[in-house]
Amino acid sequence: MFEARLAQGALLKKVVEAIKDLIEDANFDCNSSGFSLQAMDSSHVSLVALSLRADGFEHYRCDRNVSMGMKLASLSKILKCANGDDAITMKSEDNGDTITFMFESPEQERLSEFDLKLMDIDSEHLGIPDNEYDATVKLPAAEFQRIVKDLSTIGDTVEISVTKDAVKFGTTGDIGNANIMCRQNKAADKPDESTEIDINEAVSLTFALRYLNSFAKATPLSTHAVLKLSKELPILVEYHIPEVGRLAFYLAPKIEDEDSMRD
């Protein structure tokens, strides 16, 4: 059987809110090391990878590897019924066709249980190469959210250019263009507001803002968003969930040259 208790249930709520608009349904894979999910959006342009480590849970038990298919919209409905300070316990019997969510209020005076029917989902698991990236930018999550939101009012795509000491976001649209630059800033006194750039090679890539805006819904999970870029490869946008795991998004770039299309 599978059983996992998360004292800060709000975390699970935030995770589901962050991904539910991007993917319709997904398999949650549970094994002894943790709870994870990998799913692409329906157009196969972006991918969500969530991993919550077993030791991040207050209590974690998984006797047998299971894969539980759930509709994110349904999961979100159920988790909306949990209070922000509730502890959430997930339970499922081996070979069961439901998963139980149990919400406990901090004082234990209120206890609620919701069963969600599991479904069979055909999913393609992608192997993601563990490459080193040309450039890594760590910036405050709220700042990243604001940048992509502001740029979306002007254009559909953003060109992200990283150089040694700054990252530039630029877009062009019918009404004009916009550029936002963030300089490296390792303010020791305010670690939450730091912007750090780690670079092997300058890169510049173009992405659809629609997806980045979706990714930024994960902002409540972490103080920082980490962008990892390599030439002609998908961008990785990571949100580290302190002591529990991470939520990562991959997005395929726009391709300028027609002939360089791969199939």
Binding site: M40, H44, V45, L126, P129, P234, Y250
Partner: peptide
């Protein structure tokens, strides 16, 4: 010109 993720990750 939008790349597909599955053309990068097998």
């Amino acid at each position: 010109n939008q790349g597909r993720l599955d053309s990068f990750f097998g």
